[in-house]
């Protein structure tokens, strides 16, 4: 299936769950990333229930706390 991850379209095997995708994509702190799938944010405690499907658009948004 094709997934668009942070703007890049990738071919991945069918039936991947969100926690699996976080590992495949080398997301360093999976519990610290805000995940958005097709414009909806996925709550941390719902990650394990999410199975990705062909055409999903996924964004990983990271905390950035600096400013000074």
């Amino acid at each position: 299936m094709k997934l668009t991850i942070n703007g890049d379209t990738k071919e991945l095997k069918d039936g991947i769950s969100l926690p699996e995708l976080l590992i495949i994509e080398n997301v360093e702190q999976p519990d610290m990333v805000s995940v958005q799938i097709n414009d909806e944010f996925i709550r941390q405690d719902e990650h394990t229930n999410v199975v990705l499907k062909d055409g999903d658009e996924i964004n990983f948004l990271y905390f950035m706390g600096g400013g000074a």
């Binding site: 948004l61 905390f63 950035m64 706390g65 400013g67």
Partner: peptide
Amino acid sequence: GGILRFGGQ
């Protein structure tokens, strides 16, 4: 605004 290393948001 947030910045870190080479990035910003």
